[in-house]
Design a protein around this nucleic acid. Structure first.
Lengths: 189, 189
DNA sequence: ACCATATACTCAACTTATTGAGTATGTCAA
DNA sequence: TTGACATACTCAATAAGTTGAGTATATGGT
């Protein structure tokens, strides 16, 4: 499971609390790894048990104590081991495609609406990513870490663009009265 | 969870055994929904409990009896209900991107090798999909179901192409001695 | 004063997915 | 004849992910 290894990779850059890591997931990792705060806290606990990370308690005024985690030597070893393992593509599970598969059994306007909504979602996500891209490109001397992070951002941008293009392709066919894909037969009424 | 609804959608076309459904997943659904045989059997059991499918036992010589499942009226209702629910994009979890993120901490040749391997994997998958595309296009009168299935295939083809393009983009940068992304510092040795 | 949002972490129940074994047999090729 | 692969299904353990609540306080806006 790569969640552990994603966390370890982030900790290579600098020590961080579970909360910090969760923030990093939201703002830059989300385009290729999604994890909830709960998951991150749970994994950090397990990783600490294995000696891959160690934490320092930082007392805070008013708030619960911070646990600042750092990667250990054992953690580095585990990470390097994992980096050298071959990686397989992640199996995909995409609800929208199931709806397209069932296109013959659902009202056409609903499918079109769904595709338009999705196109919009991906467009917005792409614009957010492109802002980050512009930010990166405005920095004349990005760090090595930033340069690699940028490559993952490129993946995110392409992914969103690709969805938009596919949605457009399908919408053209669905809206075509002839020759395209038509013929919804209402089920059970 | 869309596994149930994917199975229901497949059963709309014609009744099938768990084994048949599993085959269909492998040969045409895999590009957007991956499920193991065990999962399919388990879900069919639960779906039967809810009255969404019903099976007929077909005795076989030598082999275990086949359970031929068909979608029920209740199943159709459930499917239509689900079709009308809005769909959110699936969160992505992609190991390879985690490795790219950690590019500064892993030996460059390993990362390059992984990317080349992945490019190859996606190329092969794309070629398989394109065969199916050619097959579809050679049929002058595809069924409505086939036409929708083709739209999902288009998603698969685009997805693979997009991966190939990204791999190429990244490989160019990684192989560039200057100006690109270099500078692996060996960890712990 | 009140509400939303942010910080920072914990616990528990639940669903979903993975892995591996087990039961039984038929076909095809080396 | 041995082994690989296909048919056809079941059971069980574990891993991973989701959902929701709970503890505590600070800040900023209406």
């Amino acid at each position: 499971m790569a969640l552990v290894h994603t966390i370890l990779t982030l900790l290579c850059d600098h020590p961080a609390s579970g909360y910090d890591i969760s923030k990093q997931f939201e703002e830059s990792v989300a385009c290729y790894w999604k994890a909830s705060q709960q998951q991150i806290y749970r994994e950090l606990g397990k990783m600490e048990g294995k000696g891959w990370v160690a934490f320092e308690l930082v007392p805070q005024a008013g708030k619960p104590d911070k646990k600042i985690y750092a990667i250990t030597e054992t953690g580095h070893q585990e990470l390097l081991r994992w980096y050298q393992e071959p990686t397989e593509p992640t199996p995909i599970r995409e609800d929208l495609l199931v709806k397209v598969l069932g296109g013959a059994y659902l009202p056409n306007p609903i499918l079109i609406q769904e595709l338009q909504r999705r196109r919009q979602t991906h467009l917005e996500q792409m614009l957010r990513y492109q802002e980050r891209e512009a930010q990166y490109q405005s920095n004349p001397h990005p760090s090595l870490q930033d340069r690699y992070r940028y490559l993952t951002l490129r993946r995110g941008i392409r992914y969103e663009q690709d969805w938009i293009h596919w949605c457009d392709e399908v919408l053209v066919l669905l809206k075509q009265p002839d020759g395209g894909v038509q013929g919804y037969n209402a089920l059970g009424g």
